[in-house]
């Protein structure tokens, strides 16, 4: 009986050790990494791109920023970050030509691919920046990216921030990421994007 128990313990140890190794392997499968220099642009002309610029500054990223640049800005850069979000119409804005904006962004991504650049799609203004126009942009642009960063709830994890801060309440970003096999990071606060950028671009924190 004692010998049997001993074997069971050994087996259990092996199983749990194997599981631990497997978990480590999963954790070790770090998210895709990206290289600088980076070009940050807006798709939808919301102020989210300015906030992404602040995240880049705080992360110490080598970047250039322009709301809606010429494609030539891409030359010499390694990564394109597209910040998605349509400017609110609540302010009485005439609004942007959304079809033109999306077409421009798709062409921008195509040019980036020609230059062998990687592409990150960010949506960092939360649920307040969802809505039909923003969603058109998300549906068109997010699937083209190599990686998605979204301010919203991780599926299956309780969201503790305010409801309007959750851009993934309906699972749109999770679905796009799953269907297109794109890596995704969920953040609870916009400022968490600093750490995400540091991880993605392997930036060491400075003193």
């Amino acid at each position: 009986m004692k010998r049997r128990l001993g074997w069971m313990l050994i087996v259990l140890l092996f199983v749990s050790a194997g599981a631990a190794v497997g978990q480590e392997a999963e954790e070790a499968a770090a998210p895709e990494t990206f290289a600088a220099p980076v070009v940050i642009v807006s798709v939808g002309q919301s102020a989210g791109a300015q906030q992404a610029r602040v995240l880049a500054i705080r992360a110490g990223l080598d970047y250039v920023f322009e709301q809606r640049p010429e494609f030539s800005i891409l030359e010499g850069s390694q990564t394109l970050i597209l910040v998605m979000g349509a400017s609110s119409k609540g302010l009485g804005a005439a609004g942007v030509d959304i079809d033109g904006e999306i077409a421009w962004a798709i062409d921008m991504v195509a040019r980036a691919r020609e230059l062998e650049m990687k592409v990150i799609a960010m949506h960092i203004e939360g649920g307040a920046r969802r809505g039909s126009t923003s969603d058109q942009i998300i549906h068109a642009i997010a699937p083209l990216a190599d990686y998605i960063v979204v301010k919203g709830a991780t599926p299956g994890v309780e969201w503790v921030e305010s409801e309007e801060a959750d851009a993934n309440a309906d699972g749109l970003f999770s679905t796009i990421a799953a269907e297109n096999e794109i890596g995704i990071t969920y953040i609870a606060k916009t400022l968490d994007g600093v750490e995400v950028l540091m991880d993605l671009f392997e930036i060491e924190p400075t003193e």
């Binding site: 002309q45 919301s46 102020a47 989210g48 300015q50 906030q51 400017s87 609110s88 302010l91 009485g92 804005a93 005439a94 203004e125 939360g126 307040a128 920046r129 921030e161 305010s162 309007e164 801060a165």
Partner: peptide, 10 residues
């Protein structure tokens, strides 16, 4: 949590 909007030309 505040939304940020750009003041547009119009």
């Amino acid at each position: 949590s505040l939304k940020q909007e750009e003041s547009r030309q119009e």
